[in-house]
């Protein structure tokens, strides 16, 4: 790892200023992706701005119809929150299945979605539940946030402050683990929301996406039998030693069916 200047600001404004004043600054959230990336010298920022001292980025707020999670809230805290589980059980369960316990004790929701790893779990929650990503500059709808592999709508120096999830009528997340890495080979969030049924898929493609053919099939009710005639195209899906695009397409439908049944209409 190359050395860097380390900053630990106490407010969002100071964090943004520290990043803006750096030659090539990077925000440090939980560090569970960034630190391994630095160790491999795949990135070498001049400055790291550690966000762990910014109290306004911490915490969980549940109101009647939404759950807002501060960007620096750790996966373990979302998983253990009774308030989150009572409002959106699928979200708490998803957080409790990320990585391993040690990753969940450090990793944060803001870091996960800013990184937008193609196999990360949180992007499926944000997109599937039609969340809003709040930053120090604006609010971004989930449909506009994830723009490509490791790419988001965030601008240079823009900092996620929180993510707001509207409480769905029903939702469930199903993940098919890669047996070695435990990352999602395919993960599917199925949600029945005020705006209709949403099916968000992670792991299968270069970036989280909505499976519109499955959304249409499930519009009449959340049940795997509703997917009998539906299909998912393998075009553009990932291909590696673990799975072909066709197998991933098959898994998307299978996991969506399991999620639909578990969500229970």
């Amino acid at each position: 790892m190359h050395d860097f200047q380390y900053h630990k600001p106490g407010s969002v404004a100071d964090a943004a200023a520290a990043a803006a004043g750096a030659e090539d600054g990077s925000f440090l959230a939980g560090g569970q992706t960034l630190i391994p990336t630095l160790k491999q010298r795949l990135a070498a920022p001049s400055d790291l701005v550690d966000l762990s001292g910014v109290s306004e980025l911490q915490g969980i707020t549940v109101s009647g119809d939404s759950v807002t999670i501060g960007a620096m809230t750790r996966h373990a805290d979302v998983a253990a929150s009774g308030d989150v589980a009572a409002a959106i059980l699928a979200l708490a369960a998803l957080a409790g299945g990320i990585g391993d316990p040690q990753v969940r004790n450090r990793g944060t929701i803001g870091g996960s979605i800013a990184n937008n790893d193609p196999a990360a779990d949180y992007p499926a929650a944000v997109l599937g539940l039609n969340a809003t990503v709040n930053t120090n500059k604006r609010s971004i709808a989930a449909d506009d946030f994830f723009t490509g592999m490791f790419e988001t709508a965030l601008e240079e120096g823009e900092l996620i402050t929180s993510v707001s999830f509207p409480v769905p009528e029903a939702a469930n997340y199903q993940k098919f683990h890669n047996p070695a890495s435990r990352y999602a080979l395919v993960g599917v969030m199925v949600a029945k929301t005020g705006g209709g049924v949403r099916v968000a898929v992670t792991g299968a493609g270069p970036c989280v996406f909505r499976a519109s053919s499955l959304e249409q099939a499930l519009a009449g009710g959340l049940s795997s039998s509703a997917l009998d005639g539906a299909s998912v195209s393998a075009d553009g899906l990932n291909s590696d030693i673990h799975a072909t695009p066709e197998y991933r397409a098959h898994l998307v439908k299978v996991m969506a069916g399991r999620a639909a049944d578990a969500a229970g209409g």
Binding site: K8, G31, A76, Q102
Partner: peptide
Amino acid sequence: VVHVDGRSVKSCTTLALQ
């Protein structure tokens, strides 16, 4: 793995400054 403020973490994926 060590405990930081009572929680298990991977010390190879944590900066000393953190």
